[in-house]
Nucleic acid binder design. Structure first.
Lengths: 175, 175
DNA sequence: GAGTCACATGTAAGTCTTGACATGTCAATA
DNA sequence: TATTGACATGTCAAGACTTACATGTGACTC
């Protein structure tokens, strides 16, 4: 369902596009919000066309197929955006690592948290780059801000956790 | 894969348990980190037993089957915890709503963000409750901290976004 | 004794997602 | 002209996940 919404949203925001374009747009702009490759997008567009949410038009040249959102598609999109209850399905491998951190000895734990921190920092840098002048983020300024805040929260957590682990290590060595 | 890790982690941290126990533990403690119901857990435990990661022992009474982690299982768990690259697979419906917020008119957008905010606040309250004295969080203090930070980041984002939308609305009315 | 609730385990159908494979066009360049 | 690389579309198998269905026990209470 959410994949449909994402595709409808892109089509609504940027106008008609090919599956290829949509896959690129996903990679570039929606990446930190939802993920999908072309192998998921192409079949989904076909189904959406069957359901009357988008219209196809073959643009001769290179076998390109241009999809455009229909009024019905726009209605469904609007409906979802306004009416969808935020279902908190969380599935984060990093959080899982954090959860099980106590099972590791201090040195391993420190190494793991450092890796998580480095990863979050590079994600943060990537997002900051997206938001910098010159980058045309047609839509998604709000989502970018959310992404930045989430990434910063992760970095902060890693720093605080490293501090705790450092203390723990010191007290172990003192003993 | 991650489901296996989560189950191995629980077994390692709390000792032998039945599938039922594990499902409960998932719901209670791992909920904000990873989600899985019994219909996913039972078959997975069977496969894990086949792979030698856990050992089963039927405890007569009510058909209970007690699973215990094997040395091999513990080794795999450790390996994953220490060696797993943090793969950032993000799939958040809320972030998707945030991404497409610009497609809505100001009033709808405000309503959506308010809902997101309320949701994040209740999640935050739930987590704070988990961390309060009397709650025995065998493990997962670090993950709880991470969850708190993420939830707070969401609340902060909602507040900042509401401020922006409020201004936008005011300027529209002024025009 | 009947009913209800928490315990306890499963199956099956269907959807979502990933990763590997497969095919062909067009433009530039070596 | 041959090759490379971006463009462009797809299929298929396998795995992850959800929802609904199905079954039976033991303890307590009405």
């Amino acid at each position: 369902m959410s994949l449909r919404i994402a595709l409808l949203g892109l089509l609504d925001a940027t106008g008609p596009a090919s599956g290829y374009d949509l896959a690129k747009a996903f990679e570039k702009s929606l990446n930190h919000v939802w993920q999908a490759g072309h192998t998921q997008i192409y079949p989904e567009l076909v189904k959406m066309a069957e359901d009357g949410l988008v219209e196809v038009e073959s643009e001769g040249a290179r076998g390109r197929k241009i999809y455009a959102i229909t009024p019905e598609g726009a209605a469904r999109l609007h409906e979802w955006l306004v009416g969808h209850e935020p279902s908190v399905v969380i599935r984060s491998e990093t959080a899982l690592q954090a959860f099980l951190l106590s099972l590791l000895d201090v040195d391993d734990a420190i190494a793991v948290v450092r890796r998580i921190k480095a990863d979050a920092e590079s994600r943060l840098a990537g997002l900051e780059c997206l938001g910098s002048p010159g980058s045309e983020l047609f839509t998604g300024r709000f989502a970018l801000d959310l992404g930045l805040r989430q990434a910063r929260a992760m970095v902060d957590w890693a720093e605080a956790t490293l501090a705790v682990l450092g203390e723990r290590k010191a007290s172990l060595q003192g003993a």
